[in-house]
Nucleic acid binder design. Structure first.
Length: 563
RNA sequence: UGGGGAAUAGUUCAAUGGUAGAACAUCGGACUCUGACUCCGAGAAUCUAGGUUCGAAUCCUAGUUCCCCAGCCA
């Protein structure tokens, strides 16, 4: 996996503290808590994406930094949306990102029995009741943002009756939606979460872990805080939209005989410009077949990024750079790209690959002659070693490295100019061969045998160094260029297909790559010199490698060229 | 006309009553066997209006703008 490189952690370990870490430090200093316990609580209703990475890094990160621990807890309270596949994928992705929950794999469903007992406790103490109202009636009586709600006619029903009905709900006597258990708080509260929220609803559905054992399931609000308390979570970190759930979170802890009192803190989730992280949309892309799966390299999922070749350490570094705060913000993509390039530049071995080949015949190179050149695997890292590549009379260069009528600042090959073939020789273009359509199909060049290795004895300079692959050596490969998935922001309720970028995946066939790319270290990220970072795709077949372009190198020539 | 949050360079995050700083991005320049990397330099911000104070991004008052909440989703 791309994470082989994760050992090279480029980030300084501590870059100032965010408000969460300050709170934890203060709690430790004041002895309010003796050991920090956090949790990452995904709902297994889809794959993890880069937005989740921020929460994972925060929760596991602070636990690590303060000598505590972090649990992985599945918030599996809605069996109509959750699947085992997602549970497995989430575990895999958290591990890949570089974190370990050790013995602390938990599920909200582990607590179903206790939560039910506590529900009875709330009824007995007069803080919960079974409501027979229909969903529509409940909505109508909840009031609006500016008007208070009205009490349900079942709100004051006898404790024994509610107790009996709740048990019969559990026993499966009623169909979906027939009744719910509600907390008795305040229908006039300005905070709508406190207007007698639902604790249990009837759902005759099979649960990935409990099967058909239950047909009533606790709501998020009812399950989350109590699960935190049961697990001994000290700091329950979640995103901003749960801020007005905090009074309810605290209400349950106050009204129940819980073993601990966790506290909830909220931070702004990670958003990235032009990147869709809506789970609904991501599910739709997969279900409707707009992408090849959750790990399609165009997806912002951790699985997709991994397949694309983005190292876990780069994601961690990016997340660290974006900081933790309470203001909604949208990070620009180049910040992410910087983290990827910075890591890959240090770790990726260099290789040569020609994406759009143009054949070059070196006229003064003897027919039948061949030779090997020893070249470095990483110019800045001698420890990366060397490899041997072959040179010959026929080679391929990049089509766009040649221009018959070059503009002013074009340094590369054109008729009459001399350039360096990286690690090899200087060559000069003597003749351009075209097909009937007038397209350049071949170049006739000469080389200077004295420049072997890439330097001229007379110290003359060339303005460009180009990558190349010898025809005798070339392995045919497929290269996939990944572009933005969406052309415009999709409407989650509308036609996803209509918003897609029709050019989100460019497939290049007939690429010519050096043979080292088919043998050793095939699972490590590589740099195709002068082009970018690439990662071997799982679709590779023997003798026919497939590469995803993780990200291109910065290209200032592209800017000059396009003005 | 409800409740809960947030406002600092283009972007993200610092500065916790005492010189507004960093990263990314942008623009110059140097270097270069990757038009990469690296290095050097530049421009660029406290939402507004009052007030307190020797001194305010920070405290107070009044506004403005943006985000979240009316699921038996999480």
């Amino acid at each position: 996996m791309a994470d082989e490189t994760a050992i090279v952690e480029t980030a300084p370990p501590e870059v100032g503290r965010d408000f969460i870490r300050e709170i934890i430090q203060a709690d430790l200093d004041s002895k309010r808590v003796s050991k920090v316990v956090t949790r990452f609580p995904p709902e297994p209703n889809g794959y993890l994406h880069i937005g989740h990475a921020k929460s994972i890094c925060l929760n596991f990160g602070v636990a690590e930094e303060f000598g505590g621990r972090c649990h992985l807890r599945f918030d599996d309270t809605n069996p109509t949306k959750e699947e085992q596949e997602y549970i497995d994928a989430i575990k895999r992705d958290v591990h890949w990102l570089g974190f370990d929950w050790g013995e602390h794999l938990h599920h909200a469903s582990d607590n179903f029995e206790q939560l039910f007992a506590w529900a009875e406790h709330l009824i007995r103490t007069g803080f919960a009741y079974v409501d027979d109202q229909s969903q529509e009636q409940m909505r109508a009586s909840r009031g609006t943002l500016t008007e208070p709600g009205k009490n349900s006619q079942f709100r004051e029903r006898p404790v024994e009756e509610s107790l009996d009905l709740l048990r019969r709900m559990r026993a499966g006597e009623f169909p979906n939606g027939a009744r719910v258990l509600r907390a008795k708080i305040d229908m006039a509260s300005g905070n709508i979460n406190l207007r007698d929220p639902v604790l249990y609803r009837i759902l005759h559905a099979s649960h990935p872990r409990t099967g058909m054992k239950w047909c009533i399931y606790p709501s998020y609000d009812y399950a989350h805080g109590q699960s935190d308390a049961i697990e001994g979570i000290t700091h329950s970190i979640c995103t901003l939209e749960f801020e007005d759930h905090r009074p309810l979170y605290d209400w349950f802890l106050e009204h129940l005989p819980v073993p601990a009192r966790p506290r909830q803190y909220e931070f702004a989730k990670l958003m990235i410009k032009n990147t869709v992280l809506s789970k609904r949309v991501l599910v739709g892309l997969v279900r409707e077949g707009h992408v090849k799966g959750w790990d399609d390299p165009r997806m912002p999922t951790l699985a997709g990024l991994r397949r694309r070749g983005v190292p876990a350490a780069a994601i961690r570094d990016f997340v660290r750079r974006t900081g933790v705060a309470k203001a909604n913000s949208v990070v620009e993509v180049p910040m992410f790209e910087h983290s990827i390039r910075e890591l890959l530049n240090k770790t990726a071995l260099r290789r040569m690959a020609v994406l759009r080949p143009l054949k070059v015949v070196i006229e003064n190179y003897p027919e039948g002659k061949g030779e090997e050149l020893e070249v470095v695997n990483h110019p800045d890292d001698p420890a990366a070693g060397t490899r041997r590549i072959r040179f010959g009379r026929e080679i391929y260069i990049e089509y766009e490295d040649f221009m018959e009528n070059p503009p002013k600042k074009f340094f590369r090959l054109s008729p009459g100019t001399e350039v360096r073939l990286r690690y090899a020789y200087f060559i000069t273009c003597k003749e351009v061969v075209k097909n009937a359509a007038g397209e350049v199909v071949e170049l006739r060049c000469t080389y200077d045998p004295a420049t072997r290795g890439g330097n001229a004895p007379d110290a003359r300079k060339v303005k460009a160094t180009m990558h190349w692959v010898a025809a005798v050596d070339a392995v045919n490969a497929e290269v996939r260029i990944i572009n933005e998935l969406f052309e415009r922001a999709p409407d989650p309720d509308g036609d996803l297909g209509a918003a897609l970028n029709s050019n989100s995946l460019e497939v290049l066939q007939g690429c010519m790559v050096e043979p080292a790319l088919t043998s050793a270290n095939t699972d490590a990220p590589v740099q195709f010199e002068r082009q970018g970072y690439f990662y071997r795709d799982a679709d590779s077949a023997p003798g026919k490698p497939v590469f995803n372009r993780t990200i291109g190198l910065r290209d200032t020539w592209a800017k000059v060229r396009t003005g």
